[in-house]
């Protein structure tokens, strides 16, 4: 399992498609895929938006966040792409705070289980692990 992270719009998906020679059809989009099918393809991008949708639907609370990590790690998913969203001012809005925290916890867990972690900076990779 390969984890690719980086800031918003840093060309993470383009990097993954090119590097691993896959097409966008092989990837689920966390922004709008069927939630039950999130891990059904070779990879997923916009994991942060999938997590946001989970929270909005009340499927994730502070205690059961590892539920989504297990869902990912028990699947055959090979490539996971997620925005880094943990910087900046702590949001006043409770939902936004919960969202940031949840993404941080989940991605850190995925990162631990991934064999390779790549951070993309405007399209340029830095290998953080593996």
């Amino acid at each position: 399992m390969i984890l690719i992270i980086g800031g918003a719009y840093h060309n993470k998906l383009a990097y993954a498609l090119k590097t691993y020679n896959i097409s966008v059809e092989d990837m689920q989009n966390g922004a709008d895929c069927n939630i039950d099918e999130a891990c059904s393809k070779k990879g997923i991008y916009n994991l942060h938006l999938l997590i946001k949708r989970y929270i909005k639907q009340g499927l994730l609370t502070g205690d059961n966040y590892n539920y989504i990590t297990e869902k990912i790690t028990s699947s055959n998913i090979e490539i996971i792409i997620c925005d880094e969203i943990g910087s900046g001012i702590i949001p006043l809005d409770r939902f936004e705070r919960e969202y940031r925290d949840m993404v941080g916890r989940i991605v850190s867990e995925v990162s631990e289980k991934a064999c390779k972690v790549i951070r993309i900076y405007y399209g340029i990779p830095t290998i953080l692990k593996g």
Binding site: G6, G7, A8, Y9, H10, N11, H48, D83, E84, I85, G86, S87, G88, I89, P91, E96, Y99, R100, V103, Y122
Partner: peptide, 20 residues
């Protein structure tokens, strides 16, 4: 690129255009 907040549609478009 790193705060994860959703601003208005115009601001999102700005972040996307600049980073691309």
């Amino acid at each position: 690129s790193y705060d994860g907040l959703y601003y208005s549609k115009e601001v999102q478009e700005y972040i996307k255009t600049l980073n691309n």
